[in-house]
């Protein structure tokens, strides 16, 4: 063939974004030395919402799996941390990682059940599964039944001696998990699987007839997202130091707000959840004392976004300027000779 070509992965925008990103991450990693205790707490919250949003966007945006039951895995991760640390004598940091692994394993049989349903039935099915988890954990008296339990003081001290030491450690773990979730989605999208997932996002029918095993791909996405969600769940309750079925399996906290973040930011992209989480926390700070009007405004914004900008804020930006901050694309550069 009389043609030479190269396939380019990164773009100018992505190289600039990478540099800025590294500087931001360094600044964030040093936050315990410049931010107040309250700020750190809120940033931990931002980080875990960012990770949850990345996972939901991966699921719904690429796998087409609109789950309303991710709280099942948040709660399971949280409870696994408490059970392993309080009863298994496992170091809490190790327990955090194990909680993610166990959650991924539990997601396998869960997927077999949930995947029998599609579309709206899948959404409702995942919610029902999460409710079953909640009711199930409320029956376990060793874990405090319906009223829950606190992490024993000796275990809390084993994380770090001082309160600020513990808070800093939790902060760094949260930062690592948030970055890890972005990295996970990035690496997935950049790989061969990214081609398959993006194809499934755009047309499941065409993906199948081009050789993509859509069931297997979606299954793997579901299990991977569950594992990361479980890890985040463990982190959330490591910060809170107390867990109960209602808090652990809250559909509003761990799914509804996450969907809001992804929808306004932009579904099916890495940038969308990042923008969404920033917008969400800004809104929350502004509207902190609006009472229930806050939720009404939030709902209104989500509805307006779905109607007028279905691909969210990032969708508007990337359509207008055709940019990608994360180099997941493949550009073909040819020279005829």
């Amino acid at each position: 063939m009389s043609m030479s070509y190269t396939v380019q992965r990164s773009t100018k925008a992505s190289r600039v974004a990478m540099t800025v990103g590294v500087l931001i991450v360094i600044g964030l990693a040093l936050a315990p030395y410049w931010a107040s205790r309250g700020d750190l707490r809120m940033m931990v919250e931002i980080f875990y919402y960012l990770a949850l949003a990345q996972m939901w966007s991966l699921l719904a945006g690429y796998g087409g799996l609109v789950s309303v039951g991710q709280q099942a895995f948040v709660g399971l991760g949280g409870y696994m941390l408490f059970a392993l640390a309080a009863f298994g004598g496992v170091n809490p940091i190790l327990a955090l990682v194990l909680a993610g692994v166990i959650t991924a394993l539990v997601a396998i049989p869960t997927a077999f059940v949930a995947f029998r349903l599609t579309g709206a039935y899948f959404a409702i099915g995942t919610w029902v599964i999460a409710e079953v988890f909640r009711l199930g954990f409320a029956q376990v008296s060793a874990l405090g039944g319906g009223s829950g339990m606190s992490l024993p003081a000796s275990i809390v001290r084993s994380i770090a001696e001082s309160r600020s030491g513990r808070e800093h450690l939790v902060y760094w773990i949260a930062l690592a998990i948030a970055l890890g979730s972005i990295l996970m989605v990035f690496l997935l999208l950049r790989s061969r699987w990214g081609l398959a997932m993006t194809a499934i996002r755009d047309s499941e029918t065409a993906s199948e007839s081009l050789g993509v095993e859509t069931y297997v791909t979606k299954f793997l996405v579901y299990v991977a997202a569950a594992g990361m969600t479980g890890l985040v769940g463990a982190l959330i309750f490591l910060q809170k130091l107390r867990i109960s079925p209602d808090a652990a399996f809250s559909v509003q906290d761990w799914t509804a707000l996450v969907i809001f973040i992804v929808v306004i930011g932009g579904i099916g992209s890495i940038e969308g959840p990042i923008i969404g989480v920033i917008v969400f926390f800004l809104l929350r700070e502004i509207a902190a004392d609006w009472g229930s009007w806050y939720l009404i405004v939030l709902g209104g914004i989500a509805v307006a976004t779905m109607l007028f900008a279905p691909r969210g804020i990032w969708g508007l930006i990337s359509d207008k300027w055709d940019i990608n901050l994360f180099p997941v694309g493949r550009r073909l550069i040819t020279e005829k000779d």
Binding site: T198, D202, R330
Partner: peptide, 18 residues
């Protein structure tokens, strides 16, 4: 049934890689 959000080249890569 194009993969609307992917480039033309990436559309073909799905067929090639899978």
């Amino acid at each position: 049934h194009p993969f609307a959000g992917m480039t033309v080249f990436e559309n073909l890569l799905v067929g090639g890689a899978f």
